[in-house]
Simulated assay, not measured.
Amino acid sequence: MFTIEHDFDATVITLIDEGHEGLQEDITINAFDDCITLEQLHPITEEPMVITLSMTQLRDLAAALDLPEGSYRLERPKG
């Protein structure tokens, strides 16, 4: 399950783990103009852990999901 909310400066997506044993904490994804952040509470300390991806890293991640094992460099579009 997931939710999507549009705030003033970001789109916020929350991924909710449900329906099986070993559930993980919710993940909140904040999509800004220049970066993406992923936040998840640490299950023991309950402190938020944050990862920030540049838009280039996000593009590379999206491409990597559909590629076989290997090393890749995506070319930037010209123009």
Rank of each mutant, 00 (worst) to 15 (best):
A63V: 03
I13W: 12
Q40A: 05
T37W: 03
P43W: 00
E46Y: 11
G70W: 04
E39T: 07
N30V: 02
E47K: 09
T52H: 08
R76T: 06
F8Y: 10
H42T: 00
I29D: 05
L58F: 13
F32Y: 14
L23I: 09
P43R: 00
I4V: 12
G79V: 08
E5Y: 06
H42N: 11
T28Y: 09
L67C: 08
L38P: 00
F2V: 00
S71F: 07
T37M: 03
N30E: 07
L53T: 05
I4D: 05
A31E: 01
L67N: 11
M1V: 02
R59E: 01
F8H: 10
L67G: 02
D17T: 10
M1H: 05
D9C: 07
L74H: 11
L15D: 14
S71I: 07
A64G: 05
L23W: 09
E47P: 06
N30R: 14
D66S: 10
T14E: 13
H20A: 15
P48M: 07
P68F: 05
T14S: 15
L15S: 14
E25H: 09
P77L: 15
T14L: 13
A31K: 08
E75G: 06
M49A: 09
L61R: 04
F8P: 09
M1S: 08
R59T: 01
V12Q: 13
D26S: 06
I51W: 12
E69C: 08
L53I: 01
E75N: 07
F2E: 06
S54C: 05
P48C: 07
G19S: 10
A63H: 11
F8L: 09
E25G: 02
C35A: 03
A62H: 11
I16L: 14
T56Q: 12
I36C: 02
A63L: 04
D60F: 07
T56C: 01
L58E: 03
T3I: 03
T28P: 10
G19E: 11
P68R: 06
S54F: 11
I29N: 04
T37P: 02
G79E: 14
F32S: 04
I44G: 01
R59G: 00
T11P: 13
L38A: 07
E39F: 00
R76A: 15
P77N: 13
G19P: 15
R73I: 11
L61P: 02
R76W: 08
L58P: 00
